[in-house]
Deep mutational scan, measured.
Amino acid sequence: KELVLVLYDYQEKSPRELTVKKGDILTLLNSTNKDWWKIEVNGRQGFVPAAYLKKL
């Protein structure tokens, strides 16, 4: 499993997105899109802007 660090808080703006908090370490599911990465948070899957995340 690949992990990502959340660099900035992000509030979901659609049902396909997820809310994340700065400092969270989460599972990366897909990073093929350069702008939006798919991650998992508490069993939910969704997208967060790639600029808000850093691969560990």
Rank of each mutant, 00 (worst) to 15 (best):
E40H: 05
N33F: 08
L7T: 05
V4W: 04
L28F: 04
L5K: 06
I39N: 01
E40K: 05
G43I: 03
G23A: 03
V6R: 00
Q11G: 08
N33H: 13
D24H: 07
G46M: 09
E12M: 12
P49C: 03
N42A: 10
A50K: 07
L18I: 09
L7Q: 04
V48L: 08
V20F: 04
Q11I: 10
T32S: 14
N33L: 09
K13S: 11
I25W: 03
D9T: 06
K54D: 05
R16D: 12
V48G: 01
N42G: 14
T27E: 11
K38T: 09
K21W: 14
Y10I: 01
K34F: 09
E40M: 10
E12A: 13
V48F: 02
G43H: 12
V48Y: 02
Q11M: 13
Y8V: 12
W37M: 02
N33G: 11
G23S: 03
G43T: 05
V6T: 03
I39K: 00
R44L: 12
A50Q: 06
E12P: 14
V6W: 01
E2A: 12
W36C: 07
R16V: 12
V48S: 01
F47V: 07
V20E: 00
K21H: 15
I39R: 00
A50W: 02
G43W: 04
K55T: 07
W36F: 10
L28A: 03
L53F: 04
W37C: 02
E17W: 05
D35R: 14
K34P: 14
Q45V: 13
V6Y: 00
T19A: 06
L53G: 01
L56V: 11
E17Y: 05
K22C: 07
K54F: 13
K38V: 15
S14Y: 07
E40A: 09
Y10R: 03
K13F: 06
E17F: 06
V4E: 00
E2D: 12
T32P: 04
L3D: 04
L28H: 01
V6M: 02
Y8E: 13
I25C: 05
S14G: 14
K21G: 05
T27C: 08
E2C: 11
N30V: 08
R16E: 12
P15S: 12
W37K: 01
L5V: 12
I25R: 05
F47G: 02
K13V: 08
Y10N: 01
N42K: 10
I39S: 03
G43S: 08
I39V: 14
Y52E: 01
R16S: 12
L29C: 07
K38L: 15
E17N: 08
A51W: 10
T27F: 13
V4I: 06
D35V: 12
V48A: 05
L28E: 01
G43E: 09
S14E: 09
L29F: 04
L56Q: 05
L7V: 07
Q11F: 14
E2Q: 12
D35G: 10
K38M: 14
E17P: 09
D35M: 14
L5H: 04
L26I: 13
Y10P: 01
N33T: 07
E12Q: 14
K1Q: 15
I25D: 00
S14L: 07
E40V: 08
I25Y: 05
S31Q: 10
V48I: 08
N33Y: 08
T27M: 13
L7M: 11
T19Y: 05
D24K: 04
E12W: 08
Y52C: 07
T32I: 09
L3Y: 13
R44A: 09
P49D: 02
L56Y: 11
S14W: 08
D9N: 11
K22T: 07
V6H: 00
V4L: 04
Q45I: 12
T19F: 06
N33C: 09
S31V: 07
S31C: 10
K22R: 14
E12N: 10
A51S: 13
K13H: 10
E12C: 11
Y8A: 15
L56E: 03
T19N: 07
V41D: 15
R44F: 08
L53W: 01
W37E: 00
Q45D: 09
Q45W: 12
F47Y: 15
K21T: 11
K21R: 15
L7C: 06
G43K: 06
P49W: 03
W37P: 01
S31Y: 11
D9Y: 04
Y52G: 07
N33M: 09
L29S: 03
G46T: 03
R44Y: 08
L3W: 15
P49R: 05
A51V: 13
A51Q: 12
K1Y: 15
L3K: 10
G46F: 08
K55H: 08
L7P: 00
I39W: 00
G46D: 01
K55D: 03
L29W: 06
K21D: 04
V4H: 01
